[in-house]
Amino acid sequence: MTSKNKHTLVVNASTSHLADVRDFVAERSREYGFDEETISDIRLAVDEACTNIIKHAYQYDEEKRVEIQVGLKDNALWVCLTDTGDTFDPNSYSKPDLYKQMKNRKRGGVGVFLIRELMDEVEYSRDNESNTIKMVKYRTE
């Protein structure tokens, strides 16, 4: 089965583009007919994934680029974010302990958790020089 209505946005790896990335994904989700609550989930998950790329894969190197692709397949929305930076190892991730983090004045590490909570499928892959996180959200009605 093929994806239809695929859309692509490429941005420099700067947090100043996060709002554009969120708006782009929200707009496509709206076009595909998702409800506002689901769109909120998708917006946040994509923001977290993009922030992680900027921060961890590229260490805030604004010359680097992030590609965002959105499409609809089998009544589910998929979003792929691709970068050419350092690879994230999902096995190194553990669920954040908020109490401990708060006590140690530590922030961060909760983005991956949020992505998993908000999306129905999350998959990390590496191909040649690029990393891709693919997230899928099912239509609920």
Binding site: E48, R105, K106, R107, L114
Partner: peptide, 11 residues
């Protein structure tokens, strides 16, 4: 987003 929550966690 979590970066905003992180500010509260840090302070």
């Amino acid at each position: 987003a979590s970066a905003g929550l992180g500010v509260f966690m840090a302070y």
